[in-house]
Design a binder for these strands. Structure first.
Lengths: 189, 189
DNA sequence: GAATATACGGGATGGCCATCCCGGTTGTAT
DNA sequence: ATACAACCGGGATGGCCATCCCGTATATTC
């Protein structure tokens, strides 16, 4: 079908690609989505042209960065679903997502709806964390561990609260307090 | 002291000023802080120059818009503090702030730390809503209505969760659900 | 060790936007 | 009615940034 006999990419190209990916992961994590592409290129030791050739768009770069983390998270979700009762699974995964987002400002911003849409990024990345969380919520509700009326959108909103800038990045204690408040609030009483 | 014999501003200037203020309030509320000044000017029926002459900076314009709403809110806080028990006062004011933010996207964004710093805007506006909420939190904790460990920063984070984009602007039901979750989570158990 | 496709760097381009500026206009005081 | 300060509109300016382009360099193949 494709008349193009695809040759393996050049060695320097592969090297640069991973450099960029690593630099992007670090900078998105610490600086957030608004970090200029130029900075990522500088940190990776390449020109801006190289970045946009490998990843046509900043959003595509972000999606690529997300790919592996997302895969890990969905795997984690599947393990929890299989081994824990629905309530525990949901609350544990919720906390895991919050902690993940806390270490990754770009992810948190995306979750909060600032910058790129995380749904589409996730789909580009071929991994659906949201879907897992949604399923776990429903299961936990059926099991009576989480209040009935709560919507998936409600949960996402509460999650973004746990990730708000007010909760300092390094302050795991604050994060745990907030998670506790939300989870206790979500429980059936 | 001021050698300037301040004359009353011209009538058209006053008219334009209030036009701009009204337009800005509407647009910040519906579109958020990222609305271009140009749009505000257009909606107000004036040139962009007129806007920046009256309000030297976009942030100053936002602070001016906030002024009256903030005054109302602090007044409300003072009434609640005087007439209700500390727990009720705190929870009621918390909900009031969330609903206020829901009707005013600019305010919500500012609270969430996106765009301008609301603290400084509030201080420019001469009204300290944060201070009131903080005091009410402490009182509610002393009265045993709210868990002890909770920080004011925690509360702000949770509040911004109630205002997340996921909770659709028109959906008062969703807002109430999320508020309930958070308030129940905050209560001493 | 040539020949050639591939990839590189970083300047050029274009869009967006807040703020500033100035030639022209209008309210106001006399 | 006149004169002057105050004010207006909106174009000009400058900064920031993602993306594109192209002359140059280099990995790969034969």
């Amino acid at each position: 079908m494709t008349g193009k006999p695809v040759r393996a990419p050049r060695a320097d190209a592969r090297r640069n690609r991973t450099s960029v990916l690593r630099a992007a992961a670090e900078m998105f994590a610490t600086e957030g989505l608004s970090v200029p592409v130029h900075e990522i290129a500088r940190r990776a030791g390449v020109g801006t042209g190289t970045v946009s050739r490998h990843f046509p768009t900043k959003e595509a770069l972000f999606a690529a960065v997300l790919l592996d983390r997302m895969a890990l998270l969905t795997a984690r979700a599947d393990v929890l679903t299989a081994t824990e009762d629905p309530g525990t699974a949901f609350f544990t995964f919720f906390a895991a997502l919050v902690h993940e987002g806390a270490d990754h400002r770009g992810l948190a911003e995306s979750l909060a709806g600032v910058g790129f849409d995380i749904e589409s990024a996730a789909i580009d990345a071929g991994s659906d964390v949201s879907g897992r969380l949604h399923a776990m919520l429903k299961a936990a509700q059926r099991a009576g561990a989480v209040r009935g009326g709560i919507t998936f959108a409600d949960v996402k909103a509460l999650m973004s609260g746990c990730l708000a800038r007010e909760v300092a990045p390094g302050d795991a204690g604050a994060r745990d307090r907030v998670i506790t408040v939300v989870c206790d609030g979500l429980r059936t009483r």
